[in-house]
């Protein structure tokens, strides 16, 4: 019988621990497919974050280190500088990358470190139980914005791709979503392109993946997808923001 679909080789047999409807599983798969397609898994070092994806080291079948909260781009810098022939990627959430690790991501991008960043934006802190993230939308209710995010005191949601695209350094920066097959195809292309950018020695690459958090959003998986499309995509437009080398 012909096999038409299988688990990527770059994923281990450990079952994902993510909540139903969460996009982490799809994103893991897309990253693993990119590693498979490019034939780089055996030369790749991943940097897992603090947050829901802290267990990513169990799922990817490549060398992985778990970094401190927010510091993945710094840890990745250290790895890549010692092993320039390896492929180094970080996998970070929105609290990790856009709040506590703002300095690290900005400066890694500005130095155009030859690393690839997979940035998962689900507009909320997941693992700690649903607190406001830097990317939480205006008016969005979370544990720490119980009356909705008020821009007067809490600021506006940070658009990471747009922010980093202003840097006058080489880089590939794109934002994708996963709520429909067409988006997933585009997401896979962007992630593969980001890794290729690194393989070619062109510099820093980042793909922001808009993602759901049904558990902390208090919505069903289907409703979560709808909310993402209706609320997040208008504020966080999809597309490629920068491709400079």
């Amino acid at each position: 019988m012909k096999k038409v679909f299988e688990k990527p080789k770059s994923l281990t047999d450990v079952p994902f621990t993510y909540c139903p409807g969460c996009h982490h599983g799809i994103i893991h798969r897309l990253v693993a497919e990119a590693l498979d397609d490019l034939g780089i898994a055996k030369d790749t070092i991943g940097v897992a974050p603090v947050g829901c994806a802290v267990l990513a080291y169990l799922f990817f079948d490549c060398d992985i280190i778990v970094a401190a909260h927010g510091r993945a781009p710094a840890t990745a810098t250290g790895l890549k500088r010692v092993k320039p022939d390896n492929i180094v990627f970080t996998y970070q959430g929105d609290g990790d990358l856009a709040s506590i690790g703002t300095a690290e991501i900005v400066h890694a991008a500005n130095r155009s470190e030859k690393i690839t960043v997979i940035f998962v934006n689900n507009a909320v802190y997941g693992m700690t139980g649903g607190q406001m993230a830097p990317t939480t939308l205006e008016g969005q209710i979370t544990q720490t914005s119980p009356y909705g995010r008020d821009p007067k005191t809490m600021g506006m949601p940070i658009r990471v791709c747009e922010l980093l695209s202003t840097l006058n350094s080489p880089g590939y920066i794109a934002r994708v979503a996963l709520t429909k097959p067409a988006y997933i195809v585009k997401a896979k292309k962007a992630i593969k392109k980001a890794f290729q950018f690194q393989i070619d020695g062109k510099g820093f690459s980042l793909v922001e993946v808009l993602s759901t958090c049904p558990t902390n959003w208090g919505l069903s998986p289907k409703e979560s997808n709808e909310w993402l499309e209706q609320k997040m995509i208008p504020y966080y437009p999809l597309g490629e923001f920068k491709e400079v080398f």
Partner: peptide, 13 residues
């Protein structure tokens, strides 16, 4: 903070 975490990565490599 970044410096020591770069050290962490470099040492791991």
């Amino acid at each position: 903070l970044a410096a020591i975490n770069m050290v962490y990565g470099a040492a791991a490599a």
